[in-house]
Amino acid sequence: MSRSGPVGVGFIGTGMISNTYLENLTKFPDIDVVILGDLNTELAKSQAEKHGIREWGSADDVIAHPDVELVVNLTIPAVHAQVSGRAIDAGKHVWSEKPISVDRESGRALLAKAEAAALLVGIAPDTVLGPGVQTARRAIAHGDIGEPLSAQTVMQYIGPDIFHPSPEFLFAKGAGPLFDMGPYYLTTLVHVFGSVESVAAVGSKSRATRTIQAGDRVGTTFEVDVPTHVSALAKFVDGGVSQSVFSFDSPMVKMGVVEITGTEGTLVIPDPNRFTGEVKITRAPAPAAIMDPAVWEDVPITGVYAERGLGVLDLARAARNGGRPLASGELGYHVLDTMVAIDEAVTENRVVAVDSRVAAVPPVAEDFDPFAATLV
């Protein structure tokens, strides 16, 4: 049945991250958030009342709702593929928080199921669709740093157990600094360099248990199942290399470091966990000034600013207009494949090939306006 007007959206999972999604999606004219669902239906009700959503209930209620065309899956990583698969079985498009799944097999199966049903899958992060990363991409495409050669990214701090009231899932399989924060940085690198060809990595775990330091469960101890510090090298199919640090072990905070070096200069991309920020370029100094501090040029930010939810909107418009989402399931799977390969490189002490490939991701159009009503 052909539909018109805003795309009906339902949420499965109404935890902490749902707030920022709801704050934005309820402002986009092309989106109508119909219902919120959660294992804890009282939490779903509370979030619905807070954000002015008219219905709430369970995951089953969301999946069965006739007005829901697109399900936003904000569950924990271990059940991402399962919940997304149920939504696809019910004929819904799916936007899932990252990662697409916690293993390659279920990720591939999910994409195959969606393709067979002629449905679309979108995978976070959508921060890379914001004006910050997109302005940087336009500068690179313009040749402002010449041919991109290499990249360095850093994400390190002491870990989410210091602020999250229920951080256990962030230290379980499918999370840790690599799987939790890696998608922001690796997705940005794939936007710039294309598909990853192979990786090498080392990792460590600072301690076997962690203690919750915020919320009602302060003092509760839990086990750590994954490396909490990972250093990774990547080689890209079309040329280029990168080195990345992902850590929950450092009292010294370095977050949002993304530097792309080309034949004519180095470009700093804003924090890929944010939608905007400063884009700067420095060029090779004269020999006499080699030890002087870099001289930075500001690149003016272009594009309409919005927050989390851009990917859902882009997916919704693609579903109606017959296009493909920019933050696609295929891109999400390639990033998962890369992270699993990095994890294998850590545990097996070898260079690991990344078998999947993803087509070059088109840039966001400069006139993309999330606050415009385009679906009639």
Score class of each variant (00 low, 15 high):
Ala141Met: 10
Ala116Cys: 03
Pro131Thr: 05
Arg104Phe: 12
Pro177Ala: 13
Gly132Tyr: 05
Val154Phe: 08
Ser106Ile: 01
Ala112Glu: 15
Ser166Thr: 15
Lys113Asp: 01
Gly146Trp: 09
Pro160Asp: 01
Glu105Arg: 15
Pro125Met: 07
Val154Gly: 09
Ala136Leu: 03
Ala136Ser: 13
Ala109Lys: 14
Pro131Gly: 07
Arg108Phe: 10
Arg104Ser: 10
Arg138Leu: 10
Gly174Glu: 08
Pro148Arg: 06
Lys173Phe: 02
Ala136Cys: 05
Gly132Asp: 06
Glu168Val: 11
Asp161Pro: 00
Gly132Gln: 05
Ile123Ser: 11
Gly143Arg: 08
Thr153Phe: 07
Ala114Lys: 05
Leu120Gln: 04
Glu105Cys: 03
Asp126Ser: 10
Gln156Ser: 10
Ile162Met: 12
Pro177His: 07
Thr135Lys: 01
Gly107Leu: 07
Gly130Met: 09
Gly132Ala: 07
Ala114Arg: 00
Ala136Lys: 01
Ile140Ala: 04
Gln152Cys: 13
Pro165Gln: 04
Pro167Ser: 05
Pro167Arg: 03
Ala116Arg: 15
Pro165Cys: 09
Leu120Trp: 04
His164Thr: 01
Glu147Met: 08
Arg138Glu: 11
Ser150Thr: 13
Asp144Trp: 10
Val154Arg: 14
Gly146Ser: 02
Pro131Tyr: 07
Ala175Met: 06
Ser166Met: 11
Gly176Phe: 00
Ala141Arg: 12
Gly130Pro: 11
Glu168Met: 15
His164Asn: 15
Gln156Ile: 01
Gly159Ile: 03
Gly174Arg: 02
Ala117His: 09
Phe169Gln: 10
Asp161Ala: 13
Ser150Ile: 03
Val133Phe: 11
Ala124Asp: 13
Arg138Ala: 11
Met155Arg: 10
Asp161Tyr: 12
Glu105Ile: 11
Pro125Ile: 06
Pro125Ala: 06
Ser166Val: 02
Pro125Asn: 11
Ala139Gln: 02
Pro131Met: 09
Ile162Asp: 02
Gly130Phe: 07
Gly107Ile: 08
Thr135Asp: 04
Leu119Pro: 05
Ile162Val: 14
Val133Cys: 10
Pro167Phe: 05
Ala124Lys: 00
Gly159Met: 05
Ile140Glu: 01
Ala109Cys: 03
Met155Phe: 14
Val128Thr: 14
Ser150Gln: 09
Ser166Pro: 04
Leu119Asp: 00
Glu147Gly: 00
Pro165Thr: 00
Ile145Ser: 08
Pro125Glu: 09
Arg108Tyr: 04
Leu149Pro: 00
Asp103Thr: 02
Arg138Asn: 00
Pro125Phe: 09
Ile140Gln: 08
Asp103Pro: 02
Ala112Arg: 12
Tyr157Pro: 05
Leu178Asn: 09
Tyr157Arg: 06
Pro131Leu: 06
Leu119Ser: 03
Arg104Ala: 11
Ala114His: 01
Pro125Gly: 08
Thr127Tyr: 14
Pro125Lys: 05
Ala112Trp: 01
Val128Ile: 14
His142Asn: 13
Ala109Trp: 03
Leu149Ala: 13
Phe169Leu: 10
Ala118Ile: 00
Gly146Lys: 03
Val121Leu: 10
Ser150Trp: 04
Asp144Glu: 13
Gln156Phe: 02
Ala114Ser: 11
Val121Ser: 02
Glu115Asp: 15
Pro125Cys: 08
Ala114Val: 00
Asp161Cys: 04
Ile123Glu: 12
Gly107Cys: 05
Gly132Leu: 05
His142Phe: 12
Arg137Lys: 12
Gly176Met: 10
Pro131Lys: 00
Ile158Ala: 14
Pro165Tyr: 08
